[in-house]
Design a binder for these strands. Structure first.
Lengths: 226, 226
DNA sequence: CCATGATTCAATTGAACTATTGATTAGTGA
DNA sequence: TCACTAATCAATAGTTCAATTGAATCATGG
């Protein structure tokens, strides 16, 4: 790599810099949280369980690579995902799940029994929502729901699902979604709902993918940053 | 990263391993060449200008990440791109060109004057080919053309373009393409053709993207491996 | 079965990356 | 202005990664 650096070489190196930014477990986690909505450094650090200083440096790495932007809001800095990043992560996940042995192994270990919950596609959900034949629930925490959610969804955080069961119509099929295709919240929700006799399925993707596809979303008008 | 490693953590780490594989200039170059067709190690080393031993190790890195597969053919090993990788690279390029300062700078430096050559889209090319109103030329070297090319294309390697000019109809507009959206071959071809009074434009993408989109391709029945 | 060509392997060196620590900057409100 | 909170910065040590070199495989053809 220490060479004369022709045009080609430098362009590939530049693209590689962007790839390096997504080539770390913590940064992928940060990006997944940012895909749910804008977030401050400390908030992200708490959600991911890494120290503030470390999160700060990883976020700056993402910033230099052009994956996020920052704005100040009083004493905190709010990071936001750039356009195209959700698609990049989707392409990465797709290749990993299709061909990478390590990823397949982890998925088999943690999602094996659950893959029988045949998921619902975007198109199918749109059609069923139009005819009013499903109840759509968002099982993410309330603050994430408030920052943005699928149009027509009802927030039922996983923690409160047992209590909410009483208010759900057992005759109507339930579709649950959460942060993304490999987020465990909705897997758990489906299992619990089925255990109570509900007909429940899982949306194949999460809120970020739905939004990136340009499908209808809603947003609560409550203060966006917790 | 040295932690208890929950399900989430290990899955993100796994995805990060795949991302690491594309996070190197040489490996991106190798992937671009593999996107043109299957290639042996030495061949790739020659095309990219890196040593055989180094290329071998990078290719094994790509293999472990699930981006390529290998088969033996006599004494050589032929590497092949896995499905979905072209899309991953396209997503990476898209984010880099939209938001990464370094990439934008390189592109401005090397492609600035050339971006005025307003490119042709897949759809537009399909339509124009159907009505027979363009001559489509593939300006890659002959061996790459043989391994696969757009249906209806004529091979005019960049090196022979001056000689081929005589055989082209000056009344019909020319569309040129090569290895990908940032491959310089077709930029050069357009410039030379225009200098000779031809009406010439560039296909926005290259052969790999066309093929990945499922559009019609052709292949010469000559020995595939040089 | 030996020589050859293609590729991989193993060991080494230097460079780059990551997490941690403690100090520092920057805004906010009393 | 002072204390307080949020975030970044700077230095460090441990770890991983990359390129080079030369030796070792492994299939092929005489």
């Amino acid at each position: 790599m220490v060479q004369m650096m022709g045009a080609k070489q430098t362009l590939y190196d530049s693209f590689a810099e962007v790839a390096k930014a997504v080539a770390h477990g913590y940064r992928l986690q940060l990006l997944e949280h940012l895909a749910q909505g804008d977030r401050a450094v400390e908030d992200l650090a708490n959600r991911t369980g890494i120290t503030v200083a470390n999160a700060s440096q990883h976020l700056q790495h993402l910033y230099r690579a052009g994956l996020v932007t920052v704005r100040r809001e009083g004493t905190r800095r709010i990071y936001r995902l750039n356009s195209g990043v959700v698609e990049l992560l989707a392409a990465l996940r797709s290749v990993a799940e299709a061909h990478h042995a390590g990823s397949q192994q982890v998925i088999r270990a943690y999602f094996a029994a659950r893959d029988s919950l045949e998921p619902v596609s975007h198109d199918e959900l749109m059609a069923r929502l139009a005819e009013g034949s499903v109840t759509l629930i968002d099982v993410r925490p309330a603050d994430e729901f408030q920052q943005g959610h699928l149009a027509g969804a009802r927030n039922v955080p996983l923690a409160e699902i047992e209590a909410a069961v009483a208010r759900l119509d057992p005759e109507i099929e339930i579709v649950a979604y959460c942060r993304g295709p490999r987020c465990v919240l909705s897997f758990d929700a489906i299992e619990r709902l089925r255990a109570r006799g509900f007909k429940a399925r899982r949306l194949a993707e999460g809120y970020p993918e739905w939004k990136a596809a340009g499908l209808p979303t809603g947003q609560s008008d409550i203060a966006s940053i917790p």
